[in-house]
Amino acid sequence: MIFDYLLDTLIYIGIYAILAISLNLEAGYTRLMNFGKVAFFAIGAYTSTLLSIAGMPFIVGLIGGIILSALLGLLIALPTLRLRADYLAIVTLASGEILRLFFLNEQWLTDGPMGIRGIPQPMYTVFEDNYIIFYALLVYGILLICYIFAEKLINSPFGRTLKAIRDDEDAVQVFGKNTFNLKIKVFVISSCMASISGTLFAHYLAYISPDMFFPSLTFSVWTMMVIGGTANNMGVIMGAVMIQVFERGTRFLKDFVSLPVEPYNLRIIIIGLLLILFILYRPDGMIKEKKSKGRL
């Protein structure tokens, strides 16, 4: 029982760590303000769910989600990434909300507010008895791949130029770099990674509904990045651990002690306070960005 609870928490940490790494690529290293992270997470969740329900294997759902996320990423990036940085924040935030409206209103496709139950779980019949262990391994395997991918990406000429764009985009163009093109690439890559995380989320819970994809999810991931350490992949994983332990801990606590305040409210208030306090007093987060020695 306790073991299952721990594994359950570990799985959530893994899923959110993938999401946090993907946010870190675009927001941490490149300063692209994606306030609609939840949109890509939801695309991954819904696409693979619908494909699985239609009888497709898990991997097809996973890839389907990645492709759709890439397309949505392009659609958002093309009109906004040429403009001031803050327009992206507004447009992505809005995109997440519109997408949630879509899942809510297109009942023929998504069962609307009722959500979709009985989502097939990959290889369930093989690991039936120890399924949660298998799923934990699956999540951490994918997390490891995403982590290595992100590290390779950042410690490369590509990543170096992203960091330069973060410092001064105009000055990067002086050296013949098509910064618009590079920003689109990293935005699309991050969107794909977020979709993977959403797919893992949906197939783990085996149930999704539109009210799982509120903007507060986006800001929970932002908090992971800000307190863990912006532009440090290990840091944001630490952030994911802390926020998830905190979120699941307060949920757990509710069953044992009666708090004078609603735990859900308290949780969001604390997340908000953490964001403000870290931005004010510890903008680098707990683990600072690594200094590169210029070696690949």
């Binding site: 000429p157 170096r160 960091k163 330069a164 973060r166 410092d167 050296f175 770099k177």
Partner: peptide, 19 residues
Amino acid sequence: FRGLTVLENMLISSNMQKE
């Protein structure tokens, strides 16, 4: 590029290395 080292700044400006 303030957040990069001197060497990294130099490498950014090389137009031989592609991203």
